[in-house]
Design a protein around this nucleic acid. Structure first.
Length: 411
RNA sequence: GCGAUCGUAGCUCAGUUGGUUAGAGCACCGGUUUGUGGUACCGGGGGUCGUGGGUUCAAGUCCCAUCGGUCGCCCCA
C-alpha cells in the first residue's frame, strides 16, 4: 500500500508544546488574576458570528472585512464568519442579551481570532488575544480604568520596562471629521511626492498616511496638521481628563499625535503599548474608545472603550521561565515490581510531589534515563538476592529528605 | 496580493571551486559477563538531500518551476 503524505497544518496556525505552551498559559493566567483585581467579569462569546456583525461594525471597505475574514456559508446559506476581533461580537452580545441593564459593565475575555494574512513574526492566521471592554460609560474615568488595567497587567507579567504607552485622541465625530478634511487637503496638495501606497491611502484611509513607514512620506506626514487645533472644547476636556487621570494613577504615557486607529468606529482616546523588541510587530496591546459602534449595529447610542492584546506577542516578551523541576524519578529495574512502583507513585503524588517512573527500554538503561531526568530524588526499585530493594539517591536537601521519607513509608 | 531569504536523519545543524559509499550532536534501540552504580563508554537502525524538470562525464551543491517555512511590505494586536 502506498504511504500517504502526512497532512500539513493550515498556514498561519501553530502547535504549541512545552515552554511555548507554558508561556502562553502564564499570560492567560495572569490576565485572569488581574481582571478579577479590577472587577472585570469573565464573558464568553462565540467564535462564529453572522458576517454582518463584522461587516457593519468594522466598515465594509476596511481590509479586515474586504479581504481578511474567514467567511463561509452554513447549510442554511447564511454567511458566517470566524471572528477577526472581539469587540464587534461583544457589542452584539450586549444587544442580544439586554446587557444595557448592567451598564456600565466591565467585561473581559480571551481566545482565538482569525484573519487571512501572510504570517510573520508575532502574526498568525489563528492568533489569540486578551480583551477588555467597558460598555455603557462615557466617562473619561472609564478610559483611565481600562488603561490602569492594561498597565497593571504588563507590570504583573514583568514586561512593562521595555514597553511604552502611546496615547492620542481622535476627538469626537465633529473633531475627527474636521481633522480628516484638513489632512486630505494637506496630503492632496503633496500628492505627487507621496509614495504609491500613500496615494492609495489618500482615497481609502488618509489617517494612515500619518504613521507611514515610507521615508518619502515622512516629511509630508510630519508637516501635517495635528488634531489639536480641530478638537471641540468637549473633546479637549475629555482628553485632558484622561491624561490627568493617568498621571494621578501613576501610569506613564507619551503623547503620539501620529497614532491613529485602523478601524472606523474609534473616537476620542486611542492608545497602543509599544515595544521595539518584536521586529515590525511593535504593538503589544492596543485599543481605544468606540462610541459609535453599537449604534452601527442597530442598537441605541452607547459609549464604550476597550483594548486587546496579542497573547503570542506577550508570551514572546516574557523572561525565560525556570525549567520545571521534577521531584522524583523512579527507575523500575525489575518488571516484577511494577505494582510496587505504581503504589509508590500514588503515595508520592498524594503527598504533593510530582513523580515519574521509567519502566521502558532495556532494564539496564532505566537507571541511566532516570538519572538524566534531573529529578531531585532518584529512586530505584530492584530485586537483589531475591528481595525487593528501594534505593534513593539525592543531594541531601530538606525537600529531598522529605521525599525519601514518603517513599519509605510502609503502605 | 508583493518582496527577500531558507528547505540535508524524528529534532538542531555541518557538507569546500560541482568529484568516491552524504556526516555530527541530541533522541531512539542494543551491548559494556547481577551492579549501592552508569548524567559514562562502545555499537546499531534511521536520509527519494522538500517536490518536478533541466545543464553536466558527474548535482545536496548550478539553472527553471512548484510546494512549504521564516522575515518584511500592505493591513493590523
Amino acid at each position: 500500500m502506498a504511504k500517504i503524505a502526512p497532512p500539513q497544518p493550515v498556514r498561519g496556525t501553530q502547535d504549541m508544546l512545552g515552554e511555548t505552551a507554558d508561556r502562553f498559559a502564564h499570560v492567560v493566567d495572569r490576565f485572569d488574576a488581574v481582571r478579577r483585581l479590577f472587577g472585570f467579569q469573565r464573558v464568553e462569546v462565540p467564535v462564529i458570528e453572522p458576517t454582518a456583525v463584522f461587516a457593519r461594525s468594522l466598515g465594509e471597505t476596511t481590509d479586515v472585512v474586504s479581504k481578511e475574514m474567514y467567511s463561509f456559508d452554513d447549510r442554511n446559506g447564511d454567511s458566517i464568519t470566524l471572528r477577526p476581533e472581539f469587540t464587534a461580537g461583544i457589542a452584539r452580545a450586549y444587544l442580544s442579551n439586554g446587557w444595557q441593564q448592567f451598564a456600565p459593565i466591565k467585561l473581559a475575555t480571551h481566545g482565538p481570532l482569525f484573519r487571512y494574512e501572510r504570517p510573520q513574526k508575532g502574526r498568525y492566521r489563528q492568533f489569540h488575544q486578551l480583551d477588555a471592554e467597558l460598555l455603557g460609560s462615557d466617562s473619561p474615568l472609564s478610559d483611565v480604568e481600562l488603561l490602569c488595567f492594561a498597565d497593571h497587567l504588563l507590570r504583573d507579567l514583568g514586561i512593562a520596562d521595555g514597553v511604552t504607552l502611546q496615547l492620542n485622541t481622535l476627538g469626537d465625530s465633529a473633531s475627527r471629521d474636521a481633522w480628516r478634511a484638513a489632512l486630505v487637503e494637506h496630503f492632496a496638495s503633496h500628492r505627487a511626492a507621496l509614495s504609491e501606497d500613500s496615494r492609495a491611502r489618500l482615497d481609502k484611509n488618509p489617517l494612515r498616511i500619518l504613521d507611514s513607514k515610507e521615508a518619502a512620506d515622512r516629511p509630508i506626514a510630519d508637516a501635517a496638521p495635528d488634531i489639536d487645533q480641530f478638537l471641540t472644547t468637549e473633546a479637549q476636556d475629555f482628553f485632558a481628563a484622561v491624561t490627568a487621570g493617568l498621571d494621578a494613577a501613576g501610569v506613564r504615557w507619551q503623547r503620539n499625535s501620529r497614532l491613529v486607529r485602523g478601524l472606523d468606529y474609534y473616537r476620542h482616546t486611542a492608545f497602543e503599548f509599544v515595544t521595539d523588541r518584536l521586529g515590525a510587530q511593535g504593538t503589544v496591546l492596543g485599543g481605544g474608545r468606540y462610541d459609535g459602534l453599537i449604534e452601527n449595529l442597530g442598537g441605541p447610542p452607547t459609549p464604550a472603550v476597550g483594548w486587546a492584546a496579542g497573547i503570542e506577542r506577550l508570551a514572546m516578551l516574557l523572561d525565560a521561565p525556570p525549567p520545571s523541576q521534577l521531584d522524583v524519578t523512579i527507575a523500575l529495574e525489575d518488571d516484577a515490581l511494577r505494582t510496587d512502583a505504581l503504589a509508590l507513585l500514588r503515595r508520592l503524588r498524594d503527598a504533593g510531589y510530582n513523580a515519574e517512573c521509567i519502566a521502558s527500554g532495556s532494564p539496564r538503561k532505566r537507571f541511566d534515563k532516570a538519572a538524566k531526568s534531573g529529578a531531585l530524588v532518584l529512586l530505584s526499585l530492584a530485586t537483589r538476592d531475591g528481595t525487593k530493594q528501594l534505593n534513593a539517591r539525592h543531594d541531601g536537601g530538606e525537600r529531598a529528605v522529605a521525599i525519601e521519607a514518603v517513599a519509605r513509608t510502609a503502605q
